[in-house]
Structures are given as C-alpha cells and as structure tokens.
C-alpha cells in the first residue's frame, strides 16, 4: 500500500518537474518580452504586447490553421525525401565506392550554394508550386542524413564483418542485419537536425516565393504592419518545431540501441 502511494507520489513529482521544466522557459520568455516592451522605445508592430499576440492568434486561428497545413505538407514531404535521398545515396556510396567520387562533389556544392540562389533558380525553372518548395527543403535537409548515414554504415566493427564472412553471409544480409543497425544511432542524430531544418526552410521558402503557408502569412503580416500576426505565426512555428523535435528525439531514443539497454 505505502509502496504504491510512494510510486504515485513519485509519478506526480515527475509530472510536476516536467511541468516546471516547460513552464520556466515560457515564463522567462514572457518576462523578458515585457521587460523589453517597458524599457525600450520600439514601436508596437516591432515588438507587440504578448496579450495582443495571443488575441491575434485566436482571431486568425482559421487562417493560421489552414496555412499551417500547407507548411506541414511541404516540411513533411521534404523531410521524408531528405531521408530517402540521404539514406539512399549513403547506401549507394557504401556498396559502390566510385559513386561517392562522382556524386559527393555535387552534393557538397549544393550544400554550399546560398539557398536564396537555389530558390530563385528552382522558382524560375519549376514555378512557385508545391514541387519547388519540397525540392528546396529536400536539398537543404538531405546532407546531414547522407553524411551521418554514410559514417554509420562504415562504423561497423571489422571483427563483425570477419564473422559475417566466415559464416558466408550474403552482401544483403551484411547490409540489412549488420550495417544498417550499426548506423541507426547516426541516422537518429541526423533526424534531429533535418527535422528542425525542414520546418525552418519550408517557412523561409514560403516567405520568399509562395502564396500559401505560414511563411506567406508572415510576409503578409509584415506588409500590413501587423506585428501581432507575425508573432502569432512565429509562436505556432516554434511550438511546432519543439513538438517535432521532441517526437523525433523520443522515437530516436527508442530505436537507438546505443542509448537503451533496457530489457
């Protein structure tokens, strides 16, 4: 009895501590926000009152919700394609080393061209539609996946590869049962980077070329000097990013054999 009560108290303690961990940064952000408002001379559309931001969020909830779905699709599709492209290329590089010499310079070039240029070129070539936006997100996101997966696929202990050879395992078995599991901690680490980047880049592209999505709403809010709306969207994007990061982090830990030793 007393043990169970102790457990429940422990669980409540954990909830309280989690709530505290979430609340503290939120409270300190709002505190800082008000401090800036009352000590600076900045105009209201540059740094609006948090109350007005929340009000704007409620007033524009239909618009924001609708545009959020557009952003979600772009970021989600870009994220998936980043993984397909990144993991696919890494697998190709490992099984056919020549391909790495052929493709890697192009991948590094793409990574180092400023995104403004990529967006402009793609918009000219493909228009300002869904495909263009997803392509930009993919080009921005695949590189960390590629580099990490490649590293992971090659992180196999050579003595394990010897074992597979002695047992006369096929190349496919070595790939699926050894190389891929070995690279999971590396792939997981890349997801946290690419997940957040997908959202940021999706919004940025929308801001630049699109007539839909949260990026477009920010653009419109700016034009109309509606600081509250811009901040409301920023709030939504931040919360979204945080949720995505947390989910990826949680799933990553469950998948990652290097982190969990639980039975």
């Amino acid at each position: 009895m007393s043990e169970r009560r102790g457990k429940r108290a422990g669980a409540m303690g954990a909830v309280a501590s989690t709530a505290f961990k979430v609340l503290l940064p939120v409270l300190s952000i709002f505190g800082l926000w008000y401090l800036v408002i009352y000590t600076s001379e900045l105009p209201r559309f540059v740094i609006p009152d948090p109350k007005m931001v929340l009000l704007s969020l409620v007033e524009n909830r239909a618009l924001i919700a609708e545009q959020f779905m557009h952003t979600l699709k772009v970021a989600g599709a870009g994220f998936l394609l980043s993984n397909v492209l990144g993991i696919g290329l890494a697998m190709l590089f490992v099984s056919l080393p020549v391909s790495r010499n052929a493709i890697m310079p192009a991948a590094i070039t793409i990574r180092n061209v400023p995104y403004v240029i990529i967006v402009t070129v793609l918009a000219l070539a493909m228009g300002d539609g869904f495909a263009t936006k997803v392509t930009v997100v993919t080009l921005a996101g695949f590189f960390p996946v590629l580099v990490n997966t490649y590293r992971g696929l090659r992180a196999v202990d050579p003595i394990v590869l010897d074992r597979m050879r002695i047992l006369d395992a096929s190349l496919w078995e070595v790939f699926v049962k050894v190389r891929l599991p070995y690279s999971i901690p590396f792939i997981v680490a890349a997801q946290e980077i690419t997940g957040s980047a997908s959202i940021v880049i999706a919004i940025a592209v929308e801001w630049m070329i699109s007539r839909t999505g949260l990026g477009y709403v920010i653009n419109q809010g700016m034009m109309a000097y509606e600081g509250e709306l811009v901040y409301a969207v920023a709030l939504v994007a931040a919360v979204f990013s945080f949720v995505v990061y947390s989910v990826i982090h949680y799933l990553g830990q469950r998948l990652n054999w290097a982190e969990s030793n639980d039975p």
């Binding site: 394990v160 010897d162 050879r165 002695i166």
Partner: peptide, 16 residues
Amino acid sequence: RRQKKLGLVSQRPAVL
C-alpha cells in the same frame, strides 16, 4: 568457407 564449414572464435568478441 562458402560451404559454411568454418568456425572462428576470434580473440576479440565479434558479437553484435
């Protein structure tokens, strides 16, 4: 080896 008739106990563990 191709007939899977070999067994090598390596000096360092080759476990996954």
